[in-house]
Each structure stands twice: as structure tokens, then as C-alpha cells.
Design a protein around this nucleic acid. Structure first.
Lengths: 351, 351
DNA sequence: GGCTCGTATGATAGCGCTATCATAACGGAA
DNA sequence: TTCCGTTATGATAGCGCTATCATACGAGCC
């Protein structure tokens, strides 16, 4: 047992030749055709006659042949890989989007190579450089706040590029997302209309998208002449449910008559709710709570929590569809797609 | 602008030659050495004299050279890629583990290729076949319930393999995880000791790991002669917070005097808590709640929720470390690692 | 019947890198 | 001095596949 395991080393063959697995040449020989014909039969079946195709399929099955993607990538100067860059893996938002991307790809030949930028533009640049070096079929990157150098890298890349999660009018190539500014503005306007007057903003991480939601919040409050810098409570710490309660306490310490909070995301909103329960602050009567993203739990919380539903999964699906269309040479309806959002009004903001 | 975009096609060069990017030969020429020396300087710097190394580094920097991973993989019969298979992307459990894997890899040359099996052994088999065809440096797979065919594929693969998330004594190669059976048993024993007598099990998805937790639950109850099949309420539906409340209602309909629930995961536990709040069921006096995984929110919920803390992130870190050790030829302390779990007792089970 | 044209297949030559073997240079032991 | 072993570098030959050009062949046309 242990011997068995230790013998499993890096696996470099002693001899150079023959990886052990069948190659396209083996298939060709067995089928009695040239290697290039096998290649064509596998990639463009319509270019090969039915008889040869049958022979080749038989040979492939018999040998259990599977093409080597590395050799293919080298010869065709194009890897069947889509690079995907997300700023975080623990953030459910990106997990949903990733799921959409995987679902959109289905059983196709394209594989995902994922990179985690940790919300760092420099790390993003490093990863893009690395991804580009293998000539991916496409790149999907999060947000529109790339560094100047990154943007140039992307501009000169010879593959489709999709920027996701945000809305903007100047994408590198294509873009799918929604306006975080508008999301923040609509949520805040709703709180104003519901009759709340001392509406706080609670935010963690404060990445560019959070900043835009904050800007939307501020814009709505300023329009109603209700803005006050003291109402804003943020931290650079990554968001967690447990942070919501702390930030609410901080906010209340600054603004005793706070009567509503717009939370940068649902985790914080949930934390705020628990803190209110613990402190005996009645929701929504003494405190309204609004989240962002509309995770499943918002609907079932007690009281149920208002939130802004965002099209996370759809963004993933749509971005892949654009990539596939482009790769297949199909026309793209529009390179810039706004998938919008939807305010879900629930008990937590019904005064 | 639009022209700019539509001109960005698949990017196949009209001419075959020259991808445009510098190759190792360009660097070699500029540095006045042979290509193989450049290769060595980059991969095994100690094998090249300091002078040549300096020349080569300069040339690399000047040309902005980056090795082509595809060519490298083809020539060395080994791709700098680790295949990672997870059953779900939305499940925070795997997101945490993935984060551990990425963190463990750091800035190294190894890249992750991820596959989502959707809890399907057949899909897992397909993906493993696909991954293996590119000769990955290693494979990390979730669980120990592979099909027979998959297991054989893995046994004969010539790269390190780590099975993660579970504990077992017969891994394909290496294994890092913990015992879900024991987790379920410890949680249930705690409820018994706390004085609860009609302890239900609430489970969604019911994948193999959920099944083992259920088995642990049953084992504890049977030992105390408290087991009753009616106490178990499960569904194959994927887990969601909103499902917790539904399942609790189902459970109460079957067992009116239910006084505790062990939930298969924290999402369900949270849903159960909300349902109790809504229905006016006092926690923990009329109903105890215990979750599994111990997500951050369990600690701050009101009342705080008991849960079994699982080493998700650590499993990711550890599995990568084993892979790196093996690839570097370092000895592995033990191919089977039990990272354990820890019951976190909180208000929701303190009668 | 000779010609062009389109379709099906094949031969050749790499893609960019590294495994392998060969060679050169040098120091120390006999 | 001669021989051997060691270290640093290079030449060569692929890895497995596909782009490109070449060829064969039949259909259709004047």
C-alpha cells in the first residue's frame, strides 16, 4: 500500500517516446487514413466522407483515443480554455456567476481557468498576463476598474474579452452587468419614500462596486436633502454576517436617531437584523433594513428583508453566450448588455 | 468603436508563422546562448552560471518573454495544471475549500482547472477523463464515492491524487478530510445529553456526506434507544435557507412533540430558526437547533446557533501542500489525514 | 474532348518547448 | 603527465497536433 503510493511520483517516463496513450497517428494507421484526416474528422466532420468518418470513429473508440489539448493548443495557437477572473471565491455573488458560466459552457470543449484576484488590481494584472500567455479562447474579467496597463493588455489581446458585473459605456470589448449606482439609488429612494429620514449606509470591503452603490445612496439622499456624512459607516474588512452587527453598533453610536440602514450586501443586512433582535430594536418600526443581492435567506428571514435582486447567475450565462457567439462567428446583438436589477420590497422596510 | 470590436475575431493569424510574441529562441539569440540554456536558466537557475543567467534575465526582461505553457506541457508531457473537482459551486463549503487551494498554491506556476460535477458520479467520471487527457500535475477530487470506472482511471493515472472532504481508510492515493459520521454522531449525542428526547434530522440534497451524517445521527439515537424513523425528514432538493422552514413544518406534521433538530447544514438550520421565530416556537426551550459547518452567521444569529465546525479551508490548504510535497519529491508524513471537526455549543441547544 | 471548378484526401513542415545525449573545460588523483 | 569525474553548455530530435499547400478525381460547361 505505502509502496504503491510512494512509487506514484511525478510520473516522468524514463523513456522519452510514447506517453503510453494512443496518438492521432495510431488512430490514422488503424483507420488506414492520414493523420490530418483524423484531425478533420474530429473537428469538422462535414469535411470528411461518411465512410472514412465511420472508419475513424471505430478506430477512435477501439483505441480509446482522446486528443491532447496541449498539442492541439500548440499547433493551432489557441487553447480551448476560457480564463475567468473573480475577486473572491467566498463571496456568493461570484459563486453564482461562476455557476452561470459553467452552465453556459455545458459539455462543450471549452474549459475554465479561474483566477482569484483578491480584489487587487495588481494581482489581476499578473493573472491576466499569465492567462494571456496560453492564448485562451476568451477572457472574462470582473469589473471595469482595471489598471491602465491591464487595460492595454486586454485591448491588444487577440481573443474575445467580457467584463462582467458592472455597467459602463466603454468596455474593452464586451460587457454584461448592471448599474450598482442605480441599485444603491433605487434602494435608498425606496427607504425615503417609505418614510425613513435618518438612513444610514453600512458597507464592508468597499471595492469599486460597493463605492458605486454608496454613490447611488448618497445621490438619492442628497436629492432629498437628507444626506449627512455621519450616516455612512464603512470598513475595508471583508464582509461577514458578524460584521453587520458591529457596524450597526458603530452607526448608532454616531447617529442615535438612525431609523434605517442600506447595507452594501445581504450578509451585513442579516447581521444587522440579528443585532436588532438582540438589542430589542423593532424592525421595521424603529429600524428599517435593506440589503443588496437578494440571497435566498432574505425572503425567509423574520421579518423578511428587503433587498436588491441582482442577476448574478444570468451575468455568467450571458457572458459565456457572448463568447460562444463570437467564437462561432455569430453576430453579437450588442456588445454592452445591462441585465438590470429589481428591488424586492419586504417586511423590513414597511413602516 | 464598433468596428474595433467586430474586428476582434477568433484571432487566428493569417500567416502560420510567428505568434507575434517572443519565443525562447528569440531570448537565446539576444543573450547569445542556446535555447536549451534559456530553458534551464528559467527552470533550474542553479544549473546555469551566474554570468549567463544575468544575460538571459536581461534578454527576457527586454523582450517581455513569457514561456508558452502549452509548448512546455507538450514537450515535458506534464501540464502545470491541477485539476480540481467539486460537486457544487454555490455550496459555501466548497468555496472555502477552493479558497484554501488557491491560497496554498500562492504565486507558484501551478494553475487550477476546476470542474463542477453537480453531485453526479457520471459527470465526475467524464470530467476526470477530460482532465487526465491533458496530463495534469495533480488531481484533487471531492469525496470517496467515485464509480468503479472512475476509481480505476484514478488508480492508473500517473499523477498525485488527493481525495478531500471525507475520511476513509482506502484512498486512491492521498486523502484529507474528516468523518461526517462522527460529526453527525457527536452533534446528536450533544442534543441527547442536553436533555432533548425527540430529536429530528433535517436534510437536503442527501449526497454521500449527508448520508453519513445521517448515519451518525441514527447511531447516536439508537445507542440511546431514542431512534424513530419518523424523526428523519429529508429531500433530494438542493439545500437552501428557505428549505429549512418547509422541512421543519413537514417534520412537525409527522412528530408533534419534536423538541430538537439536527440539520444537515447551516443553511437549513438558519431556515429552521426563522420558521421557529415566525411560528412563535421558543428556541431552545421548545425546540433546539443544531447545524453543520459552523458558518460565520451561526455565531451571531439570535439566539446563536450550535453547529459542528468543519475544517473546510484547511482541507484545501492541506491537500495542496500534499500535492506540492509530492511533486517536489518531499516525503509525505501520512497519505491519510483526518483534520477533525469541533462542536460549537451555543444558545440554540442550551435547554 | 478539353477545360475549369469544387470536393475529398494527403504530404509536409512546423507550433515552442524540453529530454537526451554529446561535448568542452577544468581540477584533482594516480 | 595521464586519466577520470564533475560541471557548464550545446546540438539534435522530437512531444502530438494542425496550417498550408498539393494532389486526385469527378461533375459540369462550352
Amino acid at each position: 500500500m505505502t509502496d504503491d503510493i510512494t512509487s506514484r511520483d511525478q510520473g516522468r517516463k524514463a523513456s522519452r517516446r510514447g506517453s503510453g496513450r494512443p496518438t492521432i497517428a495510431d488512430v490514422a494507421k488503424l483507420a488506414g487514413v492520414a493523420a490530418i484526416t483524423v484531425s478533420r474528422a474530429l473537428r469538422y466532420p462535414s469535411q470528411v466522407s461518411a465512410e472514412l468518418r465511420a472508419e475513424i470513429d471505430t478506430a477512435v473508440a477501439q483505441l480509446g483515443y482522446a486528443p491532447d489539448p496541449n498539442a492541439r493548443a500548440l499547433a493551432s495557437a489557441r487553447a480551448d480554455v476560457i480564463g475567468v477572473l473573480v475577486p473572491s471565491l467566498t463571496n456568493i455573488v461570484f459563486a453564482d456567476t461562476l455557476r452561470g458560466i459553467y452552465d453556459g459552457l455545458g459539455d462543450g470543449p471549452l474549459q475554465i481557468q479561474m483566477g482569484n484576484t483578491h480584489y487587487s488590481p495588481r494581482e489581476e494584472e499578473r493573472l491576466i498576463r499569465m492567462f494571456l500567455s496560453q492564448r485562451p479562447s476568451a477572457l472574462i474579467v470582473s469589473g471595469i476598474d482595471q489598471t491602465e496597463a491591464t487595460r492595454q493588455l486586454l485591448e491588444s489581446a487577440d481573443c474575445p474579452i467580457v467584463q462582467i458585473m458592472e455597467y459602463g459605456d466603454d468596455p474593452v470589448d464586451m460587457l454584461v452587468g448592471f448599474s450598482h449606482f442605480d441599485g444603491g439609488k433605487v434602494a435608498t429612494s425606496h427607504l425615503i419614500e417609505a418614510g425613513y429620514r435618518r438612513i444610514g449606509f453600512i458597507g464592508a470591503r468597499m471595492d469599486p462596486r460597493s463605492q458605486r452603490r454608496l454613490a447611488g445612496y448618497r445621490s438619492a439622499l442628497e436629492a432629498a436633502q437628507l444626506f449627512d456624512p455621519k450616516l455612512v459607516t464603512t470598513t475595508l474588512t471583508p464582509s461577514r454576517v458578524s460584521l453587520g452587527g458591529q457596524l450597526l453598533a458603530d452607526a448608532l453610536a454616531k447617529v442615535a436617531d438612525l431609523d434605517a440602514v442600506f447595507c452594501n450586501n445581504d450578509d451585513l443586512a442579516m447581521g444587522v437584523l440579528f443585532e436588532c433582535q438582540r438589542a430589542g430594536i423593532a424592525v421595521p418600526h424603529r429600524m428599517a433594513i435593506c440589503g443588496f443581492n437578494d440571497l435566498d435567506m432574505m425572503r425567509v428571514a423574520y421579518p423578511s428583508l428587503t433587498s436588491v435582486r441582482t442577476p448574478r447567475y444570468e451575468i455568467g450565462r450571458h457572458s459565456v453566450q457572448m463568447v460562444l457567439d463570437r467564437l462561432a462567428g455569430r453576430p453579437i446583438a450588442s456588445p454592452i448588455v445591462d441585465l438590470g436589477f429589481e428591488l424586492q420590497v419586504r417586511e423590513s422596510t414597511m413602516l
